[in-house]
């Protein structure tokens, strides 16, 4: 059974009588341990898909099953718990809390899962070590470079040991070199066996992941999957970063 299973998911907004289909009948499976990218032009519905996958939003239609839980009819409280324990989020604008230092930011998810402060500290430091940010734990986000902030944000996404990590344009706000460092970090995490879904509009970045899903106007327009070998020759030349 796949880790994530989307069936017939639509998200429809109504703006002044006009119907906007941000997502239109999307079917998608993500297996545990997969590294997948979602690519598409601006406004195609990538973020919307991401938010629905990440339990931040609920679909207008369709069913979603995450790690065996049907989340389209979960209560807000259950959704919060799923976001907290099973999902790690990485945002384009890092979204660290400016008033907390790096360590406190990384500890934050565990505050809501109710761990003791000693355990929080230990695990936060371990996560920071994974992203090589241990020596910056006492810094405020504003005292860090964009790449460092994003690494801290990744540590925060990792700290509760989630089933899956969602990253919405994680390199969108970084220069190309720093972006590569972050991508490298995701690759490393993927090699360690983590499930990662990455949103981007940059085909070069998408090329890092084995499986790529392209969406256009809220529909999946193209799937590039190494398992369906032979359908697409691009696989033979994995993009180097």
């Amino acid at each position: 059974m796949p880790l994530v299973e989307l069936r017939g998911v639509s998200k429809i907004y109504h703006l002044g009588g006009e119907e906007i289909r941000a997502l239109d009948d999307v079917n998608l499976d993500i297996d545990a341990g997969e590294f997948i990218s979602i690519i598409g032009p601006s406004g195609s519905g990538k973020s919307t898909l991401m938010h629905i996958l990440g339990c931040l939003d609920t679909p207008t239609r369709g069913t979603i099953c995450l790690d065996g839980t049907l989340i389209h009819n979960a209560t807000p409280r259950q959704l919060a718990a799923i976001r907290n324990r099973k999902i790690g989020f990485v945002f384009q604008f890092f979204n660290l809390l400016p008033k907390l230092n790096v360590l406190q930011n990384v500890e934050l998810p565990m505050v809501y899962s109710g761990l003791s402060s000693r355990e929080r500290r230990e695990r936060a430091l371990r996560a920071l070590r994974m992203v090589d940010m241990e020596n910056r734990s006492k810094h405020r986000p504003m005292q860090l470079s964009g790449g460092q902030q994003q690494r801290a944000a990744i540590a925060r996404a990792l700290v509760n040991d989630p089933k899956i990590i969602f990253a919405d344009e994680p390199t969108g706000n970084l220069d190309s070199h720093t972006g590569e460092v972050i991508l490298e970090l995701f690759r490393k995490l993927s090699h360690e066996g983590r499930t990662i879904a990455l949103v981007t509009h940059d085909p070069e970045i998408a090329a890092v992941t084995p499986r790529r899903i392209e969406i256009r106007d809220g529909r999946i327009s193209k799937v590039i999957d190494p398992k369906l070998a032979g359908l697409d020759r691009q696989l033979e030349t994995p993009a180097s970063v």
């Binding site: 807000p76 718990a81 907290n84 660290l96 809390l97 899962s113 509760n160």
Partner: peptide, 10 residues
Amino acid sequence: IRKAIGATYA
């Protein structure tokens, strides 16, 4: 942000 990383309504 707090809600995204798991803060509940309460």
